[in-house]
């Protein structure tokens, strides 16, 4: 039986945030990346069986305004501290995917006691050994297949080509703001020791954007963090292997 979910607009210091909310249980904040930004996905449906899931949409996605204060992933981390305070959620499990993983990392640095647990999925943030491929230069139908282990399984744009181009382009605006110039935060190596939440780093075994070795490097820099690889997933684990990702999150949350 599918868990019921609703979409609410929350006023966070004057900025209207669309949040998908559903399920029952302890709170879980899901911070999306590029490609998994729809407000309610199969993954959320699965997580909602065990948690009350909150899925806010980042500023700038889906044609929403790009506020002036939004310059870095750290700015978004403060934004989500404010959102959680607004909705009265104190110690959620924080799951961040890709760009959202970067934001979740910053959040766990500025508010170490906030996340009950931290789960970073294909997370950006740390400077990679090699520059990741430029998704901005890719053709509109090239990026999602690239971010999948099985390119044919990537969702294809439906309908009018012009509208599909514009829609993708709009979603890339906040992505460009975060990672056009430097797709990482050079300060992270000097700040990651502030992360005290129990942390699990999850990586797609066939991630061609950031290789699994990047996940191992990230896990090694967070005290006590573990690394788990999900084979049969590329960069967008949330879209490609939702059931295995949900299982991993549920199992990690249940650990003593």
């Amino acid at each position: 039986m599918p868990a019921a979910h609703e979409k609410r607009t929350i006023d966070v210091r004057g900025y209207q945030v669309l949040v998908g909310i559903g399920g029952n249980g302890p709170p879980l904040l899901y911070l999306h990346g590029f490609g998994d930004h729809d407000s309610w996905l199969e993954l959320h449906e699965r997580l909602a069986r065990s948690f009350t899931v909150y899925v806010p949409r980042h500023p700038g996605f889906a044609g929403t305004p790009l506020p002036d204060w939004f310059q870095t992933a750290e700015d978004l981390a403060f934004h989500y501290v404010d959102l959680l305070s607004e909705i009265g959620v104190e110690h959620p499990i924080v799951v961040g995917s890709s760009l959202g993983g970067w934001i979740a990392t910053e959040l766990a640095i500025i508010r170490p006691a906030l996340p009950r647990r931290l789960i970073l999925v294909g997370a950006l943030g740390l400077q990679p050994k090699n520059p990741p491929p430029d998704i901005f230069i890719m053709e509109p139908d090239e990026d999602l297949p690239f971010l999948f282990a099985a390119p044919r399984d990537a969702p294809a744009a439906s309908g009018d080509a012009a509208e599909a181009f514009v829609g993708r382009w709009e979603n890339l605006i906040p992505v460009a703001r975060l990672m056009w110039q430097r797709p990482y935060d050079a300060k992270l190596p000097h700040r990651l020791h502030h992360v005290t939440a129990p942390t699990l780093v999850i990586w797609g075994g066939k991630d061609r954007f950031l290789p699994p070795s990047h996940g191992e490097m990230l896990a090694a820099k967070i005290a006590g963090a573990r690394h788990k690889q999900i084979d049969g997933a590329g960069h967008l684990v949330a879209l490609e292997q939702p059931s295995r990702l949900a299982e991993a999150v549920i199992a990690f949350a249940a650990e003593a």
């Binding site: 901005f136 230069i137 053709e139 514009v166 382009w169 709009e170 890339l172 460009a176 703001r177």
Partner: peptide
């Protein structure tokens, strides 16, 4: 290609 001519945010929607 168009994505190079008009990258994200270079123009208004």
């Amino acid at each position: 290609p168009l994505q190079m001519l008009i990258p994200p945010g270079y123009a208004s929607t």
